[in-house]
Design a protein around this nucleic acid. Structure first.
Lengths: 244, 244
DNA sequence: ATAAAAGCTAACGTAACGTTACATGCAATA
DNA sequence: TATTGCATGTAACGTTACGTTAGCTTTTAT
């Protein structure tokens, strides 16, 4: 028989946690003295090891309680748990790959605006939703062509996009000559190849009322920057479309 | 300008969460009416997308708050986060592999006692601690030999171990003839090859006082079962050592 | 003007304990 | 036998990121 302190040292579980497991019906001390003191024995050790094993497999205490009660085959439960863990692993891998992409873009262009970078990541994450949204307005073929081009040249497109956005933000703070500004804007509009852009413009014109959803297609400029930008585009008579 | 309900629908974030982000200093509505109503605008959308991106990367809200404030390079933070995620991934892979082992053992022998299986898993998880503990009593070379044999034949050893334990538990509930019981016990003692067992016995005898730590080396029997088992071993005059 | 819809604050609940605060139990010493 | 001091006991609040009421007020539609 061990006092709670001894048992705690033996198992490495804190006293509070042992009491908590008792309270939750996971681990009852073998004996409780008249004064209320808890005493544990070797059978309790086995239960603790079961609990720790299940916890390692990321079961909740509630589930562990049931598993300890049942005491029949745990195979099914194990397989289900494995499935959950595999799902988590897949998600983790996606996250890591997303970060890798972000780091890669960042290294390409150190002066990148964090806002823009985050929006690029976010647009990556919601690509499927974007496609679905666009289907309302544009022929599917065109969308596919657009995204396949986008996916293939992902890093390069984003590098140029981020660069342009950065230059424009600088220009907003400290306006350059019209010639320079025009050059910057033209670089932005030329990120997407001319023929693809033309098809897009044509389709967009069919739906004069179309308004880009700013939730799915975030604009990396503040409302003030955007307003200024619109004025400049108008003033310099650049009549191309702004593509996300 | 959007009311909180509209903004919630647009972004897919619950009203409660929007208010919570405000409370925590992550997202302030662009305007609050005299009556206290919150109104959001397009700039808020950008912030929300940043928040979601960071959340996807498993940052805490507290960290996100700092990241939103800073607004300078997030590269370092990204790399750190990637490191954390890689660590998590590694752990996940270990867990999955542990479950696989358990399933494999289980399939080998369907009537396996769940308690035993869990203890096998637990002993796997604490193998390093076991080795360290044994170093106090046994020469390192012997331990290495033992564990390398154990690792190499892991599945097979456990299959036979679990089988023996299962048979003994049956025997406890419904005692068979002495001949049968003796056979079962001999099978248990023969799981480890004779020469290794002999070396172990010799070493153990040097330290007469050695007492197996029942925390690290769990015994899959209840105290009653164990007592009965000891009696039987004594009665049948089997004088080999019980190896974990 | 009145009713319905939407929004407000405040408070409690969740999981799995950690961390106090303060009251006893129990063993060894004076 | 009384005291000291450490090991326990219970009780309650703190943590994260919100969900879920309850009860009241603002805004919107008729």
């Amino acid at each position: 028989m061990y006092s709670i302190g001894e048992f705690s040292k033996k198992t490495g579980i804190t006293i509070r946690t042992l009491r908590y497991y008792g309270e939750k019906g996971l681990l009852y001390p073998a004996y409780i003295s008249a004064g209320g003191q808890r005493y544990y024995n070797d059978d309790n050790i086995i239960t603790v090891q079961k609990i720790l094993t299940f916890k390692y497999l990321e079961y909740s205490l509630e589930d562990i309680k049931e598993l300890l009660k049942k005491n029949d085959s745990i195979l099914e439960s194990l397989e289900q748990q494995k499935y959950q863990l595999l799902k988590k692993k897949k998600q983790l891998e996606q996250m890591i790959s997303t970060i890798d992409t972000a780091i890669h873009i960042h290294q390409d262009h150190t002066a990148v605006d964090p806002t823009t970078l985050l929006l690029v990541i976010h647009s990556l994450l919601t690509e499927d939703a974007q496609r679905d949204y666009l289907k309302q307005y544009l022929p599917e073929q065109l969308i596919d062509r657009m995204y396949s081009y986008f996916d293939m040249n992902f890093i390069e497109i984003n590098r140029r996009y981020i660069e342009s956005v950065h230059e424009l933000k600088q220009a907003f703070m400290c306006p350059p000559s019209d010639t320079v500004l025009k050059e910057i804007l033209e670089r932005l509009f030329n990120i997407i190849p001319q023929d693809l852009a033309k098809s897009l413009v044509q389709e967009f014109e069919k739906y004069a009322t179309i308004e880009v959803d700013n939730w799915l297609f975030a604009i990396p400029f503040t409302t003030e920057e955007e307003k200024w930008l619109m004025e400049q585009v108008e003033r310099l008579k650049i009549h191309e479309e702004v593509i996300t």
